[in-house]
Amino acid sequence: MKITIRRGDTPETFEVASVLTLLEALEEIKQKQDASLSFSHGCRSSVCGSCAVRVNGKEVLACAHKVEDGDEVEPLRNLPVLRDLVVDAEKALQTNIRAKAWLQEYSDMALSDEDEQRNALQSDCILCGSCYSACPVFSVNEAFLGPFALTRDWKYVVDPREASPKSKIDAIQQNGVWDCTLCNECTLVCPQEISPKQDIEKLRAKSAQFGYSDPSFGSFDGGFGNNFNDGTLQF
């Protein structure tokens, strides 16, 4: 079968034997046909988050995608391409720091099974960057915190051990929770079935509890939040 791989500005077509996963196809090409083909990979068990790419316009993990004849493979969007299918994830990872995605202040308490279930799904995140790539907000606001950092924040906000959820809510008001268009693209591509969109909605409700409100209310910008203004809060 034939697959096409975007390399820089040009797509290149490769013939691959009938193989199981896209990652196996990429490895076969690198080892037998063209050693210069560049892609990232690691565990091949869908847990290290290294091998996310786009196939036919949708984000997938190469190790979990069964390759089909005619597949068009390209690197993730919204991140600088270093070479072929490899992107530079540094900027995306910085969003975790900007969102203060960590346990700020520990409150010593025994959790129940239900407590743990509250963020069991969010803590399945493998930081593969699929949601970051699928998010349309970055094309209008490069400073957006993006789906995974916000999901990560929700993970800690909802954790009863976090004594200072406000520290996170404060950190996500600007270029954060209100900038999402709730289009749900992030949810559709998450290999771990997490819904950052839902987490963002919950973060909005939590923000309201802390006295914040949608800065776009009262401004007639067609629902695009503060993408086109300076991002200051309007109370």
Binding site: W102, L103, A110, L111, D113, E116
Partner: peptide
């Protein structure tokens, strides 16, 4: 204390399971 989401038991303990060679359920897991 740094936020690891370990699985829990109904009695609010950290859940543990038995792995090979262990005399008790001792492996905390998520």
């Amino acid at each position: 204390a740094i936020g690891t989401p370990f699985s829990r038991t109904p009695t609010k303990q950290i859940a543990q399971r038995r792995l090979g060679g262990a005399s008790h359920p001792r492996a905390c897991y998520a």
